[in-house]
């Protein structure tokens, strides 16, 4: 069992969904994949297909139009799965907090495991967030084993 758990920690494939952000965080996520930051060091691949993804990176506030898309994508991801809210908007709505069409943070729609503040977030923060999320997954897997 140890081997599989280790694999889960070593190979988080991410799915990125833009929920209505300003693009700042999106391009930083992409930037995190590029040579300077190279998320692939951690086995991270931007897979783009919810059915094969482990980590859902959400940017931007949930709004009245796209919350169903977010929900759908989350439901199409098999367990174990993690959700990381990337950016201030995804955490709370941020600068869009009083926009009429915005529901607020994405935790209104799907359960969020890690919140990353920043507008826009820096690639280093994304790396930190993934490490945090994986720690949480490790904790989860351990507690399951105890049961």
């Amino acid at each position: 069992m140890g081997l599989i758990q280790k694999s889960q920690l070593k190979s988080p494939w991410v799915l990125h969904f833009d929920c209505g952000s300003c693009n700042g965080c999106d391009i930083e996520i992409l930037a995190a994949l590029t040579p300077k930051f190279d998320l692939e060091r951690f086995g991270i691949v931007n897979i783009g297909d919810p059915k094969q993804a482990d980590v859902l990176l959400v940017t931007g506030p949930a709004n009245k139009r796209n919350h169903r898309v977010l929900k759908n994508l989350y439901n199409q991801m098999p367990q174990p799965k993690l959700v990381i809210a990337v950016g201030t908007c995804a955490c709370t709505g941020g600068v869009f907090h009083n926009c009429p069409n915005v529901l607020g943070g994405v935790d209104n729609v799907v359960p969020v495991d890690v919140y990353v503040p920043g507008c826009a977030v820096r690639p280093e923060q994304i790396i930190d967030a993934v490490v945090l999320a994986l720690n949480k997954l490790a904790g989860l897997a351990q507690s399951e084993e105890e049961e």
Partner: peptide, 9 residues
């Protein structure tokens, strides 16, 4: 220094 991510808001 930038704010670090967290499990909870």
């Amino acid at each position: 220094h930038v704010q670090s991510p967290d499990y909870k808001k």
